[in-house]
Structures are given as structure tokens and as C-alpha cells.
């Protein structure tokens, strides 16, 4: 039997990747801030609600999009249930963008990049741009005259910036896959980064208030 204490026998080297990953995860958000139950008094304002409203709308967008994927791209043309789910998808997208733009206005006039929040602002802006691309490919995936018209109008613009060979708006199959796989993954990943950064640095205070006042 060894005389070495058990704690020393299970010693893990500090350069272990599992140690590094665990410490990274633990230090990503300050203790107690991942799901806080208290907020500074300045958060008691309707303008602070629009971020979570955007997230709620995005949840409905993703959920209804998953249901539409089960039925297929032509389902909403031939089924009243499919048409209903498609309408839920459309109107949750409308609300998503409406809430996101009001959230953007509020944060812009609050100069939300203050207090080490530059990356929070940048990830929000990138999420906005990625969402526009996702919505655009969604309009191209309607499989109706509207989507044909939009793709025919868009092709010259896309070709003028030199990406038409890789992002062909006249190819509905490619646009559908961008809409249901690549761009949702991008929006989801950026949104997770954005929310983690908000929890890491806290919501931005109004310009005339101190952090955590």
C-alpha cells in the first residue's frame, strides 16, 4: 500500500486540457451571474425588455422552422396546418426583427459599448446582419412567384459583389439549405456568444447612472 495521500495520487497536471477547459467555462461568467435573480434598479424600464423579447421570438422562429422542415418545403402550399405553421414562422420573424431593431435603437442611444462591452455590441451587430441573411434566404425558399421575383431581382446585386458562383440566389435548393442549416447555425452561435457576454459584463447602465447603481 502506498503512503502517498489519496489527494496527491489523483493530482492532475495544470497543463491538462480538461483543466484548462473547465477553468475557462467556470470563469466565463462571474459566479451567480449566469441566471441572476436581481438586477440594478435602472433595469426596471420597458426598454430593457426588448432583448429578451427578441430571444423569445427567435425561439418561436426556430421551433416553427423545425416543424416546417418535417413537412417539407411544399407542405404549406397543400395543407392548412402547414399554412398555419408557415404563418407562425413568418409573423414570429416579423416580431423578431421589430424587437431586435427597437433593442438596437435603445442600445445605440445608450452607447451600450461602454464598460468593456465592445464585444457585446459587435456580436449584436453581427447577429443582426446574419439574421438579415437568414431572412433573405427564407424569402427565397417560399417556392412561389414572390420568391422567384425576389431571386431574379437579387441576382444582379449578388453577382456585382462577386459571390454569385458560391451563393446562387437562382438555386432554390442551395438557398433552402443555407436558410435551414448554415445561417441558423451562425445566428444561434452568435446569439449564444452575445447572451454570454451580456451575462459576463451585465446590462449596460443608462448614461447618467453608474455601473451596478
Amino acid at each position: 500500500m502506498s503512503s502517498v495521500p489519496r489527494a496527491e495520487r489523483v493530482h492532475r497536471p495544470p497543463d491538462s486540457w480538461t483543466n484548462a477547459l473547465r477553468e475557462r467555462i467556470v470563469s466565463t461568467v462571474p459566479p451567480g451571474q449566469a441566471l441572476p435573480d436581481r438586477q440594478p434598479v435602472y433595469v426596471s424600464s420597458w426598454i430593457y425588455v426588448f432583448g429578451v423579447l427578441t430571444l423569445a421570438a427567435l425561439t418561436v422562429v426556430v421551433a416553427t422552422g423545425c416543424v416546417l422542415a418535417v413537412g417539407g418545403s411544399a407542405w404549406w402550399h397543400v395543407s392548412s396546418l402547414g399554412h398555419f405553421v408557415n404563418s407562425l414562422h413568418l409573423w414570429s420573424v416579423e416580431l423578431f426583427f421589430g424587437f431586435m431593431v427597437i433593442h438596437l435603437w435603445g442600445k445605440f442611444w445608450m452607447a451600450a459599448w461602454r464598460g468593456n462591452r465592445v464585444l457585446t455590441w459587435v456580436t449584436g451587430a453581427v447577429a443582426f446582419l446574419a439574421s438579415i441573411g437568414t431572412a433573405f434566404t427564407g424569402y427565397l425558399s417560399q417556392s412561389n412567384f414572390d420568391s422567384q421575383w425576389i431571386s431574379a431581382e437579387a441576382k444582379d446585386g449578388i453577382n456585382s459583389i462577386g459571390v454569385g458562383a458560391w451563393f446562387n440566389v437562382l438555386n432554390p435548393g442551395q438557398m433552402l439549405l443555407w436558410h435551414v442549416v448554415l445561417l441558423p447555425l451562425a445566428v444561434g452561435a452568435i446569439t449564444v456568444m452575445h447572451v454570454v457576454l451580456v451575462r459576463r459584463h451585465g446590462v449596460v447602465p443608462p448614461i447618467d447612472a453608474e455601473d451596478g447603481e
Binding site: 436581481r38 424600464s45 420597458w46 426598454i47 430593457y48 447603481e213
Partner: peptide, 23 residues
Amino acid sequence: VVALLVPFGRRHAGAPVGHRPAD
């Protein structure tokens, strides 16, 4: 504009605030 002007529920003046070492 409505979100900026309309009061939001009850105010909890002096509510404690979580410490944010990252800031």
C-alpha cells in the same frame, strides 16, 4: 418612445446588485 416613457411595474429602490469582477 412608449418603452422609454411608460413606467415599468414597481420599483425596488436600493435593491442589492450582484458583484461583477469582470468589469
